[in-house]
Amino acid sequence: MSSLALVFVGAVLLANGLVFLGPMSARAAVPVNLLVGALIVTTSLLGAVPAGLDDRMALFGALGFCVFGFTYLSVATSTLLNADGSGVGWYCGWAAVMSAVLAVVNFSEGDPRLAWLWVSWIALFAAFFLAAFTGSDRFGRAAGAVSVIQSVTTGTIPGLLMINGSWADFSVVVIAVVQVLGILGYLAVLVMPARVREGSVRTGS
């Protein structure tokens, strides 16, 4: 995925995370989902067509873009149509599987830094899937927390490091540890007693 795309992925993950957590309404997040989703899908398809069917990694890269782009478009469309969210939920389940595929591809092709981002995104899409189908406040808040965390750890910071030219020199071990900690953060919110989660929201912590 390109550096600019990752920066904007971070922006939308932050917005959608805040929707789950409560400070932002679903309708307020529609514009950023539509704009970034359309931009990412259009850019990925325009890049994939000239590459042709012989450039396997270019096509996998376009697939990665589209996984995110269609997520954002689906979220925005579902909100505008007042849909129940089950379609987005099933899509996120599929996206979690695609994230696992892309993690394996990047590990096997010698790009462990990007592969670790895809490992994180497996957890992200799985969290969205569980939130959609359980309808549970516990799963919803955990999904919001991991989305906000990953907006920084898998989107904004990696994108800026790529733009700066320092991503390729950044320690793979540090990247891996940060991604594992992000996933553990999701699990911590998931198992946190309800009274603690509610108290944190009321105090703004």
Rank of each mutant, 00 (worst) to 15 (best):
V119E: 04
Q150N: 11
T79K: 01
G144F: 15
L35V: 15
G159S: 06
V148T: 10
A115I: 11
G52L: 11
L59N: 08
A132L: 12
L81A: 14
T153K: 07
T154Q: 07
A100Y: 07
F139D: 00
A96E: 14
T153M: 06
L160R: 05
A100I: 14
N164A: 15
V75L: 15
F139C: 08
G140L: 08
D54F: 02
L34V: 13
N33F: 03
L63F: 13
S171N: 06
A83V: 11
P50L: 05
A95T: 03
V104Y: 07
V41M: 10
S171C: 09
C92G: 01
L130A: 08
I40F: 09
F129E: 01
V36F: 05
L80M: 14
F70I: 15
F65N: 04
L59T: 04
T43M: 10
C92R: 04
S171K: 00
F70D: 02
T71P: 00
A143S: 14
A126N: 03
S147M: 13
P31Y: 07
F65K: 03
W90P: 00
E109Q: 12
I40S: 06
P50G: 04
P112H: 07
L35P: 01
A76M: 07
V32A: 12
A48C: 09
L53G: 08
G64K: 02
G155T: 10
L81D: 00
V101N: 01
L34T: 02
A168S: 13
